[in-house]
Amino acid sequence: MKPVRQKAAGSRRRGRAGARKRRRLVQSKRKLSAGERRKPSIKKSKQGRMKNPPSTGWKPEMRASPDSNTKFYPVPANGAGVTPAVSVIIPVMNERRTIAAVIKEARKVHPSTEVIAVVNGSTDGSAEEARRAGAVVLEYDQPLGHDVGRSIGALSASGEVLLFIDGDFVITAGELRPYIRAVLEQKTDVALNNYHGPRRRKQVHNVVLAKHALNAMLGLPELGGASMTAVPHALSRKAVTVIGAEALAVPPLAQVKAASAGLEIRLIERIPVGIRNRKRRTRGHNSQLVRLVMGDHLEAAALLIGQRGRRGGCTDLLRKRQYCEVR
């Protein structure tokens, strides 16, 4: 579960790169919300039939197929009836301050893009902001829990590329486009952020360790600490089908499924999300969340063991176990 964000002014140390840009973006949004130059709801028409989404409990069983007529069928944010090339999926929980700027950048990643905001457990008007910024909004009263929003967004996405970002900090369209290109033009199935966490030290954070260890177990040490846990990352439609949208809620599990299916996993641009993301930085001190992520990686290891055997497919060389009564 995402932590309830505490807007502690004390924890506002900003990162280096991108901080200025983000502040600019956030500021421009603030002007809008101050009601100075807001254009009267032109953007609303772009939401098509999602204009009045249910305020309580959109459920996956209500997810409609393209031939259904339910009002829950998400229409691409940028043009009715056209299947978009790119679906950008943004889980949102009380991120009103940043969400509009995030969506604004997301909509620019490709000419044919739908933006799906999975707003859950939000009480600060995030959903309204997201809708105003032109996203299709799937709204849940209750928090869905850590990364479950990604699964839900993926279930209703119709793009050929699915790009996953977070709602609490801005990554510019220019930074995101290489991920789209990698999937659309370079046959990549899983495009990961080439970011490995702080690791130029003797002892690293548990989460950084777990990511590296999982890739090593998978026999993909060249991935280092890159992980589907981190944003941004992009998936091909094929990857979503092979991995299964529901597995995206436990990203390390999804990573094992992708690796074992032989999908093309590549490292794209390095976007130092650890520096930009205030939530992530405070997360480091949230031992409960660290334990969750650790558990996720163990569950992923368990899946690997299920797929490849007790030793994860590794050699036992010439070990003669009959002499020591070990299985």
Binding site: M1, K59, P60, Y140, Q142, P143, L144, G145, H146, D147, V148, S151, I152, L155, A245, E246, A247, L248, A249, V250, Q288, R291, L292, M294, G295, L298
Partner: peptide, 14 residues
């Protein structure tokens, strides 16, 4: 024994 918290996996079909 590490926790899963209130992750609503069923909501995502898992």
């Amino acid at each position: 024994g590490l926790p899963d918290f209130v992750r609503r996996r069923h909501a995502a079909g898992g």
